[in-house]
Design a protein around this nucleic acid. Structure first.
Lengths: 162, 162
DNA sequence: GGGTGTTATATAACGTGTTATAGATTAAAT
DNA sequence: ATTTAATCTATAACACGTTATATAACACCC
């Protein structure tokens, strides 16, 4: 048995570790989706959810809502277009922007997911994380906000100045 | 301003979110490494650290130690070979296994990193996470262990049986 | 009102993870 | 002893994120 270095090294490998856990969680989530017979990728859901919540959004707004870069959003929306879950049309007032909206098929998928799949996933994750002694979601939010406020690279400089 | 769906959806998008934060953290870590003038990728460090801690390891052991799949380990070790930080030789007793060890150059890098870079990174991450009201590292460990014990997909079934 | 800068999206190239599978070596079984 | 199964590493193909850059449309300014 080999020791888990990433775990052993603690804060030093926090990035790798969060990624690793996230990948694992998302893979497990995918399994739940597949078992339900849905033909969609876990990573595509946030896009549909964003449009469902806010109404038609542009590529750039979607990228921002989902927290990835614009080319990534362009690609995922391209997939959802292929699958027929969304529709894309130039914004009437600005031809540069493309408004992405849910098709009927997409809305059906979202409605069904909201009723059946999402609660199941959320419950499973809550079951996994809920009993931890700290509010993990708030902590993640704090980390995100902290990084946005002062990136890691500048936390040394700041410290050395003191 | 568009709302952050991944954050809004909470447990539902936990996988995406952990990944996202991990990527961000690792990118920031990379910046610290680059500023120090080291010619190495953040993701390669755990491999060097694993060998430094445990002595020469095979590809499979490295994959396990770092928590990725074997093909991923093969690739990263290939890079470290190119860079001259590690050496690889067939195990004397089993020609299938390849023992990966640190070269002098690799050991120098690890020694220097242990003194200068790693403490800086660990301190910065601790600065970011340390003041949270829960012990985040323990929680991550609990999540990892929880997933290993009962994968997400089976946490529904279990619940429905109750 | 035509040039110039800015903004929005698309595309290309790459990094790094995954799964599936092939190839080589060892272990087991008949 | 030869065949068969298991194990270890390498390779191929793909997923999905990134950065850098091209293209098209808009906004501004002289």
């Amino acid at each position: 048995m080999v020791e888990d270095v990433v775990r052993t090294l603690g804060f030093l490998c926090m990035g790798s570790r969060l990624r690793r856990i996230g990948e694992r969680l998302q893979a497990d989530t995918q399994q739940v989706i597949d078992e339900a017979g849905l033909g969609i990728q876990a990573g595509q859901y946030p896009f549909l959810a964003a449009i469902d919540r806010s109404g038609p959004l542009t590529i750039g707004e979607l990228a921002q809502a989902v927290g990835i870069t614009q080319p990534g959003a362009t690609r995922t929306i391209g997939q959802l277009l292929e699958l027929g879950y969304v529709d894309m049309q130039p914004a009437p007032d600005d031809q540069r922007r493309r408004l992405v909206s849910l098709t009927d098929k997409g809305q059906d998928l979202v409605d069904h997911s909201k009723k059946v799949i999402w609660p199941r996933i959320a419950a499973a994750v809550a079951d996994l994380c809920g009993n931890l002694d700290g509010p993990i979601l708030e902590q993640l939010a704090a980390i995100e906000d902290g990084l946005a406020a002062v990136p890691l690279a500048r936390r040394n400089a700041a410290k050395e100045e003191r």
